[in-house]
């Protein structure tokens, strides 16, 4: 347990600078996006007012400013996409960096007097915590940026939105921040499962190299089929036999089977097949 925590902390530390950079980029780009979008809007409004329009006419022309104007902009989403892309890449890099270069850290990791599975779990936990961390910090940023927007745009021209309204107004934010905790659990549970399966695929590759890529893809395919098996059966030969709750429980079970199977397979590969 202690080794697992130490390794998790260690894995976090290895990406921490990059992680802070990602957070920094997000904050800077989104803040600039708030300032820029709001000023643009106010610029248009002022132009119309100075050409003799009344405030009402200006509002009718340009609409009330809301945070949606910002979230729809490229510079708001770009850092989020950057963070997502970085972490997706890091899902692979967190393993391959231990093999790359002169300093084969994999030697050290696999010679630690602790179950090798701890290395696996620590990496998975680190990824997971970093994802949830970004999600949480973005939520804090959203609150701050919303307040910042209120400071820039005067009351008259503004339609205030709550955080939930901002999130609901934008599709992918709704996936990242579901309203229901269970939905949140499902979304991120599936994400976690995917990370574990990809990790297993990577370990296949690390164990058998070229042949391992095929095995890894095959394994991922099987994992996918096992996970969706209840729905596949439900839609085909079982002819919509299950009630939604039953299907949910079956998917939960199949998800857990995939996670457990992947961890078991990874444990096996790490102990019996891995090549440094």
């Amino acid at each position: 347990m202690m080794s697992y925590l130490k390794l998790t902390n260690f894995e976090l530390s290895r990406f921490f600078k990059m992680y802070l950079v990602l957070i920094g980029i997000t904050l800077v780009m989104q803040t600039l996006s708030v300032v820029w979008t709001a000023n643009n809007y106010l610029g248009e409004i002022n132009e119309q007012l100075s050409s003799g329009s009344t405030v009402e006419e200006a509002i009718n022309g340009w609409g009330l400013f809301s945070f949606d104007f910002i979230t729809r902009g490229f510079w708001f989403s770009a850092p989020i996409l950057l963070c997502i892309a970085s972490l997706l890449i890091y899902v692979f890099f967190i393993w391959y960096r231990d093999w790359l270069g002169k300093n084969t850290f994999a030697y050290r990791l696999f010679m630690l007097p602790t179950a090798r599975l701890n290395v696996f779990l620590a990496k998975a936990t680190a990824i997971f915590l970093m994802v949830l961390g970004l999600i949480s910090i973005q939520l804090v940023f959203l609150t701050i940026e919303n307040e910042l927007m209120k400071m820039i745009v005067p009351n008259t021209f503004r339609e205030d939105l709550t955080i939930n309204e901002i999130i609901n107004g934008f599709d992918y934010l709704r996936v990242l921040y579901p309203v229901s905790f269970i939905q949140f659990f499902i979304n991120y549970g599936i994400g976690f499962m995917a990370v574990i399966v990809v990790f297993t695929g990577i370990l296949f590759e690390r164990s058998f190299r070229w042949k391992g890529i095929i095995l890894g893809v095959l394994f991922s395919g099987i994992a996918l089929i096992v996970f969706f098996l209840p729905i596949l059966l439900h839609e085909t030969i079982l002819n919509h036999f299950f009630y939604p709750t039953e299907l949910f429980i079956l998917m939960l079970i199949s998800g857990l089977i995939v996670i457990a199977g992947s961890i078991w397979m990874s444990n096996y590969l790490l102990n019996k097949k891995i090549r440094v």
């Binding site: 925590l5 998790t8 902390n9 976090l12 530390s13 921490f16 915590l129 970093m130 949830l132 961390g133 999600i135 949480s136 910090i137 939520l139 804090v140 709550t162 955080i163 939930n164 921040y177 309203v179 905790f181 949140f184």
Partner: peptide
């Protein structure tokens, strides 16, 4: 373990706050 602890606390606090607020909304 400050990195691990800080990150975990941030996640827990923010998400709990979010879900409490959401359920109130």
């Amino acid at each position: 373990f400050w990195k691990l602890i800080t990150l975990t606390i941030v996640i827990i606090v923010v998400l709990i706050a979010y879900f409490i607020q959401t359920s109130l909304v």
